[in-house]
Amino acid sequence: MNLLKRWWKPRELEPSTAPVARERLQVLLSHERGATGQSNLLSLIKEDVLAAIKRHISIPSEAVHVKVERRKAISTMRISLDLPK
């Protein structure tokens, strides 16, 4: 099985890079759309979350990550924060 797998996908030994591209784009475009006045659900939510957190602790805006993942039946939105020590 392992041999076969290697034979089929010799390069898979290196991690795939597309998921990183996708994430970078999502983050970047939510910023840029804000700057050019395009509305974007992600950046709106991100700002709201940031505002809510900031009422309690002070964190920079880079500390909020909003990620949407599309699955077959549903999509999930994951919001994570980098908390200061």
Binding site: K9, R11, P15, S16, T17, A18, R22, L25, L29, R70
Partner: peptide, 16 residues
């Protein structure tokens, strides 16, 4: 390249 996971998927581009 898509098979190797090094190209953005169609779904990713559409979603973005």
């Amino acid at each position: 390249r898509a098979g190797r996971g090094d190209m953005l998927k169609i779904d990713d581009v559409l979603e973005i």
